[in-house]
Simulated scan of single mutants.
Amino acid sequence: MELFAIGLGILGVLSLGWFFYSYWLGYKGGNIVMTLDEHYTKLEEYVPAILAKLYEDGKAAHYLGDRKFEVEGKRYVLVERTVPIGHVPTQQTVLQPEK
């Protein structure tokens, strides 16, 4: 019985860790998360790449300026993160619903 409780505790900790890691990466309700092929440092190059990816995914979108997008009639704010994927720093694009 004690071994079962320890196993259940370890499983709970791992599940909680996975949840917070996913939340930190931007995978929460309403967000649009993308990983693009290139790393962009200039917004003038980054915005067209985001729009191209959204169009490729079949979404109607346009850039409003000031890091804001309108996708399928809803407004989003661009948040970018650098996350380790396979021990390689990767730029991740997160469009969060505007509040």
Rank of each mutant, 00 (worst) to 15 (best):
H62M: 10
P48K: 02
E70A: 03
L51N: 07
L51D: 10
V47P: 01
Y76I: 02
A60S: 10
L54W: 09
Y46E: 11
L78S: 04
L54S: 03
A61H: 11
V71S: 06
V77K: 03
E45W: 08
I85K: 00
G73L: 09
D66P: 06
G73N: 13
V79E: 10
T82E: 05
I50C: 07
E72C: 02
F69E: 07
R81D: 14
V47L: 04
V83C: 01
T82G: 03
L43K: 10
R75I: 00
L43G: 02
A60V: 10
L51A: 09
A52V: 09
V71Y: 06
E72T: 04
E45Y: 13
K42G: 01
L64V: 11
E45I: 03
I85R: 00
A60E: 11
L64F: 10
D66V: 09
A61V: 14
K42N: 10
A61D: 11
K59L: 15
K74P: 02
L51M: 11
V71Q: 05
H62I: 03
Y46Q: 09
Y46R: 09
L54N: 03
V71E: 05
A61G: 12
A52R: 12
K74M: 12
E70T: 11
L54K: 05
Y46T: 00
Y55A: 15
K59F: 15
Y55H: 14
E56T: 13
L64Y: 12
Y40K: 04
L64E: 15
E44W: 05
E80T: 10
R81V: 01
L51H: 07
V71M: 05
K68G: 00
A49C: 07
E45G: 14
K74E: 09
Y46P: 00
E80V: 03
K42R: 12
R67V: 06
R67A: 12
E56K: 11
E45F: 13
T41L: 13
V47D: 03
R81T: 08
Y55K: 13
